[in-house]
């Protein structure tokens, strides 16, 4: 079954959608979209470094993503507003990454594959790494779910309940870096944030609790991955961006449905 590239692509897409759902909810609730983008853009620098050193792209991307998260934490609250700082770091690391890649003469590298994903080229090894990361992220999210929710609502409330919001934030950042690293192959560094945010934002329309929002986001994400691959096959379009397009269309559809539902109830 895993011999078929289409099956592997669907499984990879579904894996990333599952990990992105609960994580994406926190990115939305804690307004970390720009932070996530900085981490994702840093990953391209990681890709360049791993190609240069000939180590695993997953490992390189994960390392640099975590390094970026650490730098952001160090610099935050110093001289610049958070969004300025993140804007500087996100785009500089993207630019440096692209320049680094251009130094790698000899092997011809398909940069587009890292920027927008190359889900149809997912190997069995890639699939194993992706699902390993996905399961790890899902376990971390399940374990810290309530604690993260409380510290999202109010940090002092979390401390008073005997929790450690600082540690939980590190776990959230780690999960984000893992998701970015395993999603590079699927949607690429430029569209990872879309996979985190769009399903979660669409799920918000009909969710009444945090848990239902995560579950609906997972369903939307999986359907987008599946539908996107189908559409890419039919229309012969790039798979990663098509997946994101399907998610975006579901976002608009859900909002219209939500609006109609509200109007009827009034």
């Amino acid at each position: 079954m895993l011999d078929d590239f289409m099956t592997r692509a669907v499984l990879a897409g579904i894996g990333v959608a599952l990990a992105a759902a609960p994580l994406g909810c926190f990115v939305v609730w804690r307004r970390m979209a720009y932070f996530g983008e900085a981490i994702a853009h840093a990953a391209i620098l990681g890709v360049a470094i791993s190609l240069m050193l000939q180590i695993s792209v997953f490992a390189g991307a994960l390392m640099v993503a975590l390094l970026m998260a650490w730098i952001v934490t160090l610099l935050s609250g110093k001289n610049y507003a958070m969004d300025t700082l993140l804007g500087v770091l996100a785009h500089s690391s993207l630019a440096f990454g692209l320049v680094f890649v251009s130094f790698l003469s000899g092997i011809r590298i398909d940069l587009m594959a890292y920027l927008f994903g190359d889900i149809l080229a997912v190997s069995q090894y890639d699939l194993a790494v992706i699902w390993l990361g996905v399961i790890l992220v899902l376990l971390l999210m399940y374990w810290r779910w309530s604690a993260l929710l409380i510290s999202t609502l109010n940090e002092e409330m979390a401390y008073a309940s005997g929790l450690n919001p600082k540690r939980d934030k590190i776990i959230l950042t780690l999960s984000l870096a893992i998701t970015v690293a395993v999603a590079i192959k699927v949607v690429g560094v430029l569209l990872i944030i879309a996979m985190l945010i769009i399903p979660a934002a669409s799920a918000r329309i009909f969710a009444r609790t945090p848990e239902s929002m995560a579950i609906i986001a997972a369903i939307i994400g999986c359907l987008s991955a599946f539908g996107g691959l189908e559409a890419a096959y039919i229309f012969d379009t790039p798979a990663g961006p098509t997946i994101v397009c399907i998610a975006a269309i579901s976002f608009v559809t859900f909002n219209i449905l939500g609006f109609i539902y509200k109007s009827i109830r009034q």
Binding site: W29, T152, L153, N154, M157, A160, S161, R208, P210, M213
Partner: peptide
């Protein structure tokens, strides 16, 4: 602990019931 306010915006769905269970 009774905080001054909660920093959540409308993006976080939360019923009173779920909040009490947190």
């Amino acid at each position: 602990y009774v905080p001054q306010r909660l920093n959540f915006d409308s993006s976080l769905p939360m019923t009173v019931e779920r909040f009490m269970h947190l």
